[in-house]
Design a protein around this nucleic acid. Structure first.
Lengths: 317, 317
DNA sequence: TTAAAACATGTCAGTAACTGTCATGTTTTA
DNA sequence: TAAAACATGACAGTTACTGACATGTTTTAA
């Protein structure tokens, strides 16, 4: 039982040092050099990817794909891994070629039969579905690397007003609703802007680094829970159908007030920046809702409705 | 090196049998009963959760949480696991209490320092974001169990037309856009219908099983790639902005035809069932698009626009 | 009550495996 | 050419493992 532990520790040692001689190992573990060779051969046989360089200045080396010491999982833990892999299944692009397959195979192989069946069924009763967009995002890996290195990127981006080229410092990337997004600091505007990675048509890494950067999670928190800078109060009456619709909107749902089971209203404060989005949303709900405040939004929706009526009415001529 | 393999095999044996005597083991592996006891004590020390029952009819037992034999991962594989866990982070409800924490701890502990740093950073540059809905779904576990067991469920469901109680046979569950959905066969309508699990207000498992059932993945494939039963041809002109919008719609994007870089049109065939949805979608895009065919859709949009204009115009009085 | 079937543990001699020491090669570099 | 590495083999001493036997305890069925 002792040799096992020694080999275990040796694997850790090997992965940490990456470059060492049999002498080092002998000294570190208090064994003879001969035995050090023997042990190193052992962990080599076990699959730790070491190789040797003979001659002066030589020694043992570890390949890039370092190996972790053997780990024991219980069934529930293995299941957690399968479960998590399920969540990646429906992504078309991922930032890395990730080695799901080999992990799956290793764990699956050592499951008892009944558990294998359970895992097989997992596939047939559970999915984390995402829109399988046909757009793919070829730059994910580069963006992540740049984000890790706090490096500036030159990108060409397709926006409403046409293509623009700019230098930005990516905060990170996140997947949402089938798309990958990149919040990135744009020094030109001196603020963090959001880019959709599939709208990036060209990208080049610069060597320039960018010091001040925040973690993605912080940004996401702030982005989702941000308080309005220029608050606008809105008040919207909801019919039963309007209620049903608005309840599906995470940003609205907390602000719904029920008058009776058939009716309700929304009263909340939004930011000036979101004005267009909110207005378009209530426009789209048609007569299932009625915006009361702000007056400007009512006017805008009416105007849009009239334009649209005209847009299609003109066909009649 | 041989004893290690034997212990390894013994763990597998133990997990498969779950109930056996030292004698069985001695016979199976060609060792003495005394040694069988010794080995079993060894794997017990290693963490395999076995216990014994003395006396006639006794023997070794394995606890529910069976242990897998030690597995060796390389760094990339460990990284794949961390990566996958990242994808689960933003889900509010999951069907199980899954043991992410312990897996994370075990793998993280045996990483080399530089790799630890890389994993730490993973969190700060990558997210799989989902709307954190405030609605939670308490029935996920039960649904999954029922789906696995091909069991009928009694549910009370909130739909457009009010609450209904019905018996359905769940195909499975899937997460999409922050909600959990349950496709389930409804014998009353003799077809598979889609339910949103947060709209299920009450649920009870029946003992009745339901034989014919398809795998969730098949259903998803069919659901997403279904061919129109009652095809309707649509033709829509797109302005530049309309193009940009429609490109973000996975169901439209493949059918966009470019006339020149500023203009394009959509020509495709949709199913009668999707008529309302499609019509509403183009309505919402306003003057950025112009539906040409079918005429009925043009009429409907015009009518809606007029109604909406009126809906808000009536305020003026 | 008793016998049988299990685990639990200890002892001990024989065997297998491991270890360290030497010895001899080979490869590379200063 | 010498030094510093790995590579491998042989061998004796040591350690650890193994199996046989013995004894004890717990449980159940006859």
């Amino acid at each position: 039982m002792n040799k096992a532990k020694l080999l275990f520790d040796l694997i850790l040692y090997v992965n940490t040092k990456r470059r060492f001689t049999a002498q080092d190992v002998a000294h570190e573990f208090g064994i003879s050099v001969r035995t050090a060779h023997r042990y190193l051969a052992d962990i080599g046989d076990m699959g730790v990817p070491i190789y040797t360089e003979p001659g002066r200045g030589g020694g043992y080396r570890v390949l890039n794909n370092r190996t972790l010491p053997p780990t024991m999982f219980d069934e529930e833990e293995a299941f957690a891994v399968f479960f998590a892999f399920q969540a990646l299944k429906y992504y078309q692009s991922l930032p890395f070629d990730i080695h799901i397959g080999s992990v799956f195979a290793k764990l699956y192989a050592s499951l008892a039969d009944d558990m294998k069946r359970k895992v097989d069924r997992l596939d047939s009763v559970l999915a984390f579905w995402n829109q399988k967009r046909s757009v793919s995002s070829p730059f994910l890996k580069e963006i992540m690397e740049a984000a890790i290195a706090h490096e500036l990127l030159s990108i060409e981006y397709v926006s409403k007003s046409g293509n623009t080229v700019r230098k930005v410092a990516p905060v990170g990337i996140y997947a949402y609703d089938g798309f990958w997004y990149m919040p990135a600091f744009d020094p030109f505007y001196d603020q963090i802007r959001l880019f959709r990675t599939d709208r990036i048509v060209w990208m080049e890494r610069t060597q320039q680094t960018f010091t001040q950067q925040i973690p993605l999670s912080d940004w996401l928190d702030r982005y989702t829970a941000q308080t309005p800078k220029k608050p606008v109060r809105i008040y919207v009456e909801l019919t039963q159908e309007g209620l049903r619709q608005c309840r599906s909107q995470p940003w609205l749902e907390p602000h719904i007030v029920m008058v009776n089971p058939q009716q309700g209203y929304v009263e909340t404060v939004i930011d000036q920046e979101d004005w267009d989005f909110v207005s378009d949303y209530f426009f789209q709900l048609g007569t299932a809702v009625k915006v009361i405040e702000p007056r400007e939004m009512v006017d805008r929706i009416r105007k849009q409705a009239q334009e649209l009526a005209h847009h299609y009415a003109s066909d009649e001529m």
